[in-house]
């Protein structure tokens, strides 16, 4: 009896420890990014880093301005948003409100499988199919452009958008819709005037999380956006994103060098962006309850 009690006490302590481990991990991630990244500011001011217009990490002296990378991420993300939001939300509405029950299950499974396709596979497919198309359609010297990245990334954002928006629509009380239908509205009117507004905060959260995935996406974007670290003038030129920069250059950066610190500083920027997006989206998701 006493032995069992002691055993259970220990088990419960371990359970508690594992419970708070998530907090510890988030803290550790941030701590280690800071530890390695803040060292950069011995060499360069935070303003010079964030707003510097040139990223030439291996020139002498190194120029470590991330503005081109931030703009690269931004343009790719905006492009992906324009494509994925209407399609994603439309598909969510179709699945939640229009599709017959069996089709619904099949579609949901399909969307789940899309979410599961590794980004490196999507990047590879984008390279061999999408990139030549973009090149030919727009008569460009190269198809490795922000646009290609946007299209491919839209596919990575859509599963997130669809599934969370579909959840949001699903959790609108049935009585809302029935009320509208009882008043003589068509199904579309009840969707458009009642369901969508009622689910709006959840849909907003869906969009934010989808775009969060786009900003953080690495491999596909690195393989198909051309990786030119210059401030983009249009969506049809090669760009380099924050994530791709880390992935492409960390292998060559010497541990403890300015370049190494700078890549961690880029990591801090990414971490802060994703943190902000996730916290806000979480607020929206819980607002509806």
């Amino acid at each position: 009896m006493l032995v069992r009690k002691l055993k259970e006490l220990i088990i419960e302590k371990i359970i508690f420890l594992c419970g708070v481990l998530s907090i510890i991990f988030v803290g550790l991630i941030f701590l280690f990014l800071l530890k390695e990244g803040l060292a950069l500011f011995k060499f360069i001011s935070p303003g010079g880093f964030l707003f510097g217009k040139s990223w030439y990490p291996i020139s002498e002296p190194a120029q470590l301005g991330v503005l081109p990378l931030i703009l690269g991420s931004l343009i790719v993300t905006l492009g992906a948003a324009v494509i994925s939001i209407p399609i994603g939300v439309g598909c969510a509405v179709y699945i939640a409100e229009v599709a017959p029950a069996k089709t619904k299950e099949v579609l949901k499974t399909g969307i789940e499988l899309l979410a599961a396709i590794p980004s490196v596979v999507l990047g590879f497919i984008g390279m061999v199919t999408l990139v030549p198309w973009v090149k030919n359609i727009f008569h460009l010297p190269t198809g490795l452009t922000a646009l290609s990245g946007s299209i491919m990334l839209a596919f990575m954002a859509m599963p997130t958008i669809v599934s969370i928006a579909e959840d949001a629509l699903y959790s609108v009380p049935k009585s809302y819709k029935e009320g509208a239908l009882a008043l003589g509205a068509t199904r579309w009117q009840s969707i458009y005037r009642v369901m969508l507004p009622a689910a709006s905060s959840g849909i907003l959260a869906a969009v934010m999380l989808g775009l969060g995935r786009v900003i953080g996406e690495t491999m596909a974007v690195m393989m198909i956006t051309g990786n030119a670290a210059v401030i983009p003038q249009s969506i049809l030129v090669p760009v380099r994103t924050l994530t791709a920069t880390i992935a492409a250059e960390m292998g060559e950066a010497v541990v403890g060098s300015e370049h190494y610190f700078a890549l961690f500083a880029v990591g801090i920027v990414l971490f802060v962006i994703s943190f902000a997006i996730n916290v806000t989206a979480d607020l929206f998701l819980h607002k509806k309850r």
Binding site: S119, G216, G267, F271
Partner: peptide, 11 residues
């Protein structure tokens, strides 16, 4: 769940 995968790499 939201931390970019490449940031996990850095970490």
């Amino acid at each position: 769940a939201g931390v970019p995968s490449v940031v996990y790499g850095l970490f």
